[in-house]
Amino acid sequence: MDTNRPPLFCDLGLAERIERAEAHLVAKGTEAAHRRRGDGAGFLKPISGAVAAFAEDGSPLNKVAGLGFGGVPDAEALEEIEHAFADRGVAVLVELAHLADPAIGDMLTQRGYRLTSYENVLGLSLAGGYERVEPDGVTVRESGDEEFERWLEVVVDGFAHPDAQGVPSHEEFPYEVMAAAVRDLVGAAGMKRYSALRGGVVVGGAGFRTAAGIAQLTGAATAPAHRRRGVQTALLSARLADAAASGCDIAVITTQPGSKSQENAQRQGFHLLYTRAVLLKQG
């Protein structure tokens, strides 16, 4: 565990870089969902440097991501997106970084968006490399295609049974919908997968992808019966070591405020960079 790295200072440039990577990830997963379904029901629309995405009914990818660093969207552009979501019978969900242009938050409030939740974005400098840490009894390996279904089962089941610590998530998704979204992201976004084992059994899974020197740590979950045994610590350190070796200069993770995931990340040296407000407007 390396907790001696200096904390990152998140200026507007770094926040924009991270939000662009997030928008790209959402776009890739949404495009994969559209190809899988082939029914033309989804959409992916650019808006002021961000993306408005609808992958399929109930998908966690249905959102506006990356807004706030490419100018204030005009009312006409927002109205077009709001109609697109309304035509599909869903609310508009916007994730807005607190470092974004304040005029956007004001504009959304005036249009009837309401604050529903927050999520934290934490970062860690990878300068100088990173060493793996494996607690006793836990091993981590890259996850191959032959065990993909087991990896997927563990990850999606972990999402379905979130840790009770911290602020609860504002979202819940059916197993089948979450599994489809994870498949789409893995297949389209160039995600590298890892499995954590105890006693030779896969009990945890995680992934990461690189985008413009950023390692986005995604999809980390542990089977409920195997929590509090160092599985997340092992998965996190393995990804950090490989991300540093691949040339990334920063690792980023998104957590629920006050969650066990945030606690584990901060124990590994992550620091809070900024918070996203989750805003919702019913159709």
Rank of each mutant, 00 (worst) to 15 (best):
V94P: 00
I81P: 07
G66P: 01
V121Y: 04
G123V: 04
G112C: 07
L122G: 00
A75D: 15
A103N: 11
G105M: 05
L108F: 10
L96A: 05
A75T: 14
E119T: 12
A84F: 08
R114T: 14
G71D: 05
G123W: 04
L67E: 04
L122M: 06
N120G: 01
G89T: 03
A100R: 00
A103W: 02
H98A: 10
L122D: 06
I104C: 06
P73G: 11
V121D: 00
V64G: 04
R111H: 08
Y118L: 10
A91Q: 08
T109H: 14
A86W: 05
V90I: 15
E76I: 12
H98Q: 14
L99T: 14
L122N: 01
L124Q: 08
F85W: 08
L124R: 13
G89N: 10
A65Y: 04
H83M: 13
S117K: 03
G89W: 06
A97T: 11
I81R: 07
L124T: 00
E76P: 00
K63P: 00
R111S: 01
P102F: 07
G68P: 05
S117T: 05
D101Y: 02
E82C: 12
L67K: 01
G71P: 05
R88P: 10
S117C: 00
G68Y: 04
A97I: 03
T109G: 13
A77G: 05
A100D: 07
V72S: 03
G89M: 09
V72N: 08
V94E: 05
F69V: 00
G105L: 12
A91C: 11
E80P: 00
D87P: 01
E82P: 04
L67P: 05
A97K: 02
K63G: 03
H98D: 15
L96H: 05
T116W: 09
G89F: 02
A75N: 12
D74L: 08
T116L: 13
G112K: 08
G66S: 07
V94A: 02
V94Y: 03
H83I: 14
E119H: 14
G89P: 09
M107L: 15
G105A: 13
S117I: 00
L124A: 04
H83K: 15
G105R: 12
A86N: 06
G105T: 02
A103H: 12
G112A: 09
N120F: 12
V94L: 09
H98S: 13
T116N: 06
Y113K: 04
G70E: 03
P102D: 09
A91N: 01
R88Y: 07
T116Y: 11
L122I: 00
V64L: 14
L78V: 07
E80D: 15
Y118M: 04
I81G: 01
L108N: 06
F85P: 05
D74C: 08
Y113E: 10
L67T: 08
Q110E: 15
E95H: 13
D74F: 10
A103P: 03
A65F: 04
M107W: 01
L96P: 10
A91W: 06
L124P: 00
R111C: 02
M107F: 11
L67G: 02
G66W: 01
L78N: 00
T116C: 11
D87F: 06
G71S: 03
